[in-house]
Amino acid sequence: MKKIIVVLSIVIILLSCKSETKDNGKLNVVTTTTMITDLVKNIGGDSVNVQGLMGSGVDPHLYKASEGDVSKLVNADIIFYNGLHLEGKLVEVFEKMGSATKTPIALADQIDKTTLIGSDYFASNYDPHVWFDINYYKQFAQKVTAILSEKDKENASKYEENKSNYVARLEELQNKVKQIIETLPKEKRVLVTAHDAFNYFGKAYGFEVVGLQGLSTATEAGVQDVQKLATFIIDKQIKAIFVESSVPKRTIEALQAAVKSKGHNVEIGGTLYSDALGTTGTVEGTYIGMFEYNVNTIVNALK
Rank of each mutant, 00 (worst) to 15 (best):
D225Y: 10
I105Q: 00
A194Y: 06
L229T: 09
D59E: 08
T219N: 07
N155M: 01
E171A: 15
R189I: 08
K153S: 10
T286E: 07
D196M: 12
L184D: 10
Q139T: 15
I12F: 14
V130R: 04
Q139A: 10
V226P: 00
Q256H: 03
N199Y: 13
I147Y: 06
K138F: 14
I105V: 07
K178A: 14
K3E: 13
K3D: 07
M97S: 02
L86Q: 04
I233N: 03
G52T: 08
E253F: 02
G285K: 02
I78T: 06
Y126W: 09
G52A: 13
S47F: 04
I241S: 00
M97F: 01
S245R: 00
L107F: 13
K113N: 14
Q227T: 04
Y273M: 03
K151E: 10
G52N: 13
E182C: 13
Q224K: 10
I147R: 04
T32H: 13
P248A: 14
G270M: 05
Q110A: 13
G281V: 03
I241A: 01
G88S: 02
N162A: 11
N294Q: 05
E244P: 01
T145S: 04
V30Y: 11
F140E: 06
V266D: 01
K138Q: 15
V226A: 02
G263H: 04
E160F: 13
T279M: 07
K188W: 10
A197Y: 06
V58N: 09
Y287W: 06
G52R: 07
Y81D: 04
N265Y: 15
E92N: 10
I105N: 00
F242Y: 07
P60T: 01
V144K: 02
I238W: 06
D225R: 08
N155T: 00
V299I: 14
I78S: 02
